[in-house]
């Protein structure tokens, strides 16, 4: 009984956190699923966005301006990874790792050499804050994060339906065909990486406001959480959500489910220090499932009762 009581009280926080990380996971979805690139830059940008936002705000900048700046900072990081990958021919994974490493120093510089910068919700007009998580007002971070999620999904749905957005999807689906159809594949990869990292930095800015501080280590393992959300969303909703907007929504829901599950195991008494280990194991298993399915489980074939009736493959 005590377990359920404490779980219930912790649940709103988990949902809010999940929704904010859902935005980040949507960024990961754009590179990992749409562009078919594994981008590790996000481990850096998940700290950069917050650092930019908190530093600007503590220096008196309006919260919305700070959010836009965080988004732009993320795009810049994506640009660097994109240029490393396309112009300098470095494999995407390595390009991301290089940018991520460089960002650690840059994040420290943004925060004036301090690993941690706090922002007091009493003195600043924060969009989302931990302390409103149980209040029934429009200041509740769950409400605010949900609005952000819906707005961003709508925006992305529109964008990936435009001629430019379609060409980005084609770039991920088949680069050979894309080039043959006159699509500048390299430009599209860079643009996709910029949008993705911009979103991650935006999520980071919101998350730091929510927590009330920016931390240089905030992004450690972010890619794994992002992937976890993408995969959980796909496994649970893949069969029913086929529309692009719904797929993005399933990613956001995946992040919420991830954080709720984490909250459950933490409430059940799991050591917080083991969390990353468990996350890694769970993501590894989920990543392996499609491979195992293809390799060890053949699709069940129904042998037709009336023999002699040949299957006719379409010519």
């Amino acid at each position: 009984m005590e377990f359920f009581a404490s779980l219930l009280s912790a649940l709103p926080g988990a949902v809010a956190q999940g929704l904010i990380w859902g935005l980040m996971a949507i960024g990961v979805y754009i590179t990992y699923k749409v562009l078919d690139l594994a981008d590790l830059t996000v481990d850096g940008t998940m700290a950069t966005g917050g650092a930019v936002c908190i530093i600007l705000m503590t220096n008196g900048v309006n919260v919305w301006v700070a959010l836009v700046c965080a988004f732009l900072a993320g795009m810049l990081a994506g640009l660097v990874t994109g240029v490393l990958h396309t112009f300098m021919g470095i494999p995407a994974i390595l390009a991301g790792i290089l940018t991520q490493l460089a960002l650690y120093s840059i994040n420290l510089r943004i925060m004036d050499g301090k690993a941690n910068t706090a922002i007091n919700p009493n003195n600043f007009d924060l969009l989302v804050s931990l302390r409103n998580v149980r209040s029934l007002t429009i200041e509740n971070p769950i409400f605010v994060a949900a609005v952000f999620t819906i707005a961003i999904i709508a925006l992305l749905y529109w964008f990936f339906g435009t001629a430019l957005g379609c060409s980005i999807r084609a770039t991920g689906a088949n680069p050979n065909m894309s080039r043959a159809q006159g699509i500048n594949v390299n430009f599209n990869k860079v643009l996709g990486l910029m949008i993705s990292n911009g979103l991650v930095a935006l999520a980071s800015a919101l998350y730091c406001q929510y927590q009330g501080f920016a931390d240089v280590n905030a992004g450690r393992g972010a890619i794994v959480i992002g992937l976890a959300a993408v995969i959980i969303g796909e496994v649970l909703f893949g069969r029913i959500f086929r529309n692009f907007a719904l797929k993005l929504l399933s990613v956001a829901l995946g992040a919420v489910i991830y954080y709720v599950v984490i909250q459950i195991v933490l409430t059940a008494g799991l050591n917080t220090n083991d969390l990353k280990l468990i996350t890694a194991v769970v993501v590894a298993i989920f990543l392996a499932i499609p491979y195992w399915k293809g390799k060890y489980f053949r699709g069940k074939m129904k042998i037709p009762a009336a023999a002699g009736k040949e299957a006719t493959p379409n010519a």
Partner: peptide, 26 residues
């Protein structure tokens, strides 16, 4: 062709060969 995209989407990509791809509907 792009396997994960629809027939009409593939054709729309080809229809824009040699043209600029902006923010108008795909």
């Amino acid at each position: 062709t792009a396997a994960t995209m629809g027939i009409e989407e593939n054709l729309a990509l080809a229809y824009r060969r040699g043209k600029s791809r902006g923010l108008s509907y795909g």
